[in-house]
Design a protein around this nucleic acid. Structure first.
Length: 508
RNA sequence: GGUCCCAUCGUCUAGGGGUUAGGACACCAGAUUUUCAUUCUGGUAACACGGGUUCGAUUCCCGUUGGGACUACCA
């Protein structure tokens, strides 16, 4: 069996979409499972769409989720350069072979002429308005021009593109590892532009040439490429590379959570979830798009979630590390149908991973937030906070978001709780409790509990009746982590102060 | 419009000629937690439709419907 070499080949036109991460992931998992090589190739042949910073963004994103690149622009490798814009001469040389053998031709048509051709066909009721076997002989190209005229045009520097001369009548077949045999009649394939007038190749040419030269064994890419795969097969044939043609694997698409269609940034914005791995600022519009990382997702949770969108191990286990995914992975178990993006499941995965972390790991996230807020905190306190909160968080920033009261006294009190639970009894209990704990050396959770019990017993009031009141006085909230532990972390002085403050402010 | 791809609970999916069609998320209910969350238990919920093939199809075949992708000198 041949050496497994896969490639992830994004184009640097902006932030890398989450679907791209999944494509990269499946490539990576196959490589890892079969001891293969993962290649990152930058497909930057459209200079009009080039976005500065996008390439760095791609590398950083892959690094963040834990996809390691064996060969690529920064990793280097035997098939450098890995940036297509730097391989122009290679494509030129190859496309020349196609021309020499009559499988490609020069076309001089202007945009207006192409437009006119399409309109004419449309008006005539034609079902497809392509530049193809049926139309190429009425266009302005080296097939209709004499050799001399063509040469004259070329010498005079008339703008031209190079088109593939697709055979007019034959069935082009390919084998896709997910979908089986896919057949397309060549009359449905148009004479695709291979080389643009600026001398850059199009995707079709560059992709086939590079995959061959880089000895790619499996082309794993999104389903949107399936319709042009037969064209690529034709190219492999014309180049005489059919026996080295990679295996095709067209992945099901990631769909919108509601309704139908391909998942887009718009959907994500509307439904309030990220679609990019890392936060991205568009250099042109300055528009900011929050990433999964900045939204509090763990890379391992995101990967686990993504892996299961279109693939499953065939068992009921769901929590898989990257290693485990690679071991379990197989192309046969990839589904065919598109998968709707369910952010709730992603949140569940995140919660699972967060819960599995050590307190020390979690404290790092808390410290990250605290640093942004310029708040100092002892290691010991942070550890304690994380330990009582880890069961209740979904995102990394929740330790701070839901635990602000550990660092600031309440500035407001939950109104509903006040309305429902704040009463004479609460005031009585809190007044006495505050006094009692002030006289305590150290307010551990156990001490707090026993003092509270003795106070309520003394006053003949049920503890359950006043607990909500105590919580709202201390934290401002109606719910939260274990209250006794919370008070231990805060310390008797702080708790007493907060209670006294609440008693003086809240009237009933 | 044309070409190609796809179709099991709301969502991700397992399954496969005879099953009580399984799991997970979400949702609902109960228990635990003197709150909330966690945890536990239980529940609601699916084979798009029509023809074949077959003793028997949700499963295999065909069609219909529905959805998606592609249809650029973008990838």
């Amino acid at each position: 069996m041949r050496e497994v070499r896969v490639r992830f080949a994004p184009s640097p036109t902006g932030a890398l979409h989450i679907g791209g991460i999944r494509t990269a992931l499946y490539n990576y998992l196959l490589a890892k499972k079969l001891n293969g090589t993962m290649i990152l190739r930058i497909e930057d042949t459209d200079q009009t769409r080039y976005v500065p910073g996008a390439e760095e963004y791609i590398e950083q994103s892959l690094a963040w989720v834990g996809i390691k690149i064996d060969e690529g622009v920064t990793a280097g490798g035997p098939h450098a350069p890995y940036r297509q814009s730097e391989r122009k001469s290679i494509y030129k040389q190859h496309v020349q072979k196609l021309i020499d053998e009559g499988n490609a031709y020069y076309a001089f048509d202007t945009e207006e002429e192409l437009e006119a051709m399409r309109n004419r066909l449309k008006a005539a009721g034609s079902s497809n308005q392509q530049y193809s076997a049926t139309t190429r002989m009425i266009m302005n190209n080296s097939l209709t021009l004499s050799e001399g005229e063509t040469k004259k045009n070329l010498d005079a520097g008339v703008a031209y593109v190079i088109r593939l001369k697709v055979p007019d009548s034959e069935e082009v077949q390919l084998h896709d590892l997910i979908r089986g045999e896919v057949k397309v009649h060549s009359s449905q394939i148009d004479d695709k532009v291979l080389m643009k007038s600026d001398g850059m190749p199009t995707y079709h040419l560059a992709n086939v040439v590079d995959d061959y030269l880089m000895k790619i064994s499996h082309v794993i890419r999104g389903e949107e490429w399936l319709p042009s795969a037969p064209l690529h097969v034709l190219l492999y044939r014309f180049f005489g590379w059919e026996k080295d043609m990679p295996q095709f694997v067209h992945l099901p698409l990631l769909l919108k959570p509601d309704g139908n269609g391909k998942l887009s940034k718009r959907d994500a914005d509307q439904m309030g979830f990220p679609i990019f791995p890392l936060t991205w600022t568009d250099p042109k519009t300055n528009e900011l798009a929050k990433g999964f990382r900045e939204s509090g997702y763990l890379p391992e949770a995101l990967i686990n979630f993504l892996a299961f969108l279109g693939w499953n191990p065939g068992t009921t286990e769901e929590i898989f590390s990257m290693e485990e995914l690679a071991q379990a992975f197989s192309i046969e178990r990839i589904g065919k149908a598109g998968a709707k993006f369910d952010i709730q499941k992603a949140q569940w995965f995140n919660q699972q991973y967060l819960k599995a972390k050590t307190e020390a790991d979690l404290a790092a996230y808390l410290f990250e937030s605290l640093q942004q807020e310029n708040i100092l905190c002892s290691e010991e306190k942070a550890l304690k906070i994380c330990s009582i909160m880890k069961e209740r968080v979904t995102f990394t920033q929740d330790f701070w978001q839901q635990g602000k009261f550990f660092f600031h006294g309440p500035t407001s009190y939950d109104e509903q709780v006040i309305a429902k639970k704040w009463n004479e009894d609460v005031v009585k209990v809190l007044t006495l409790f505050s006094k009692e704990i002030s006289n305590t050396a150290e307010l551990t959770a156990a001490v707090a509990k026993s003092i509270l019990e003795s106070v309520t017993n003394q006053l003949g009031i049920g503890t359950g009746k006043i607990l909500q009141g105590l919580r709202v006085a201390v934290t401002g909230n109606g719910s939260g982590p274990d209250l006794m532990m919370t008070m231990e972390i805060l310390g008797n002085e702080e708790v007493a102060n907060r209670i006294n403050h609440a008693l003086s402010i809240i009237k009933k």
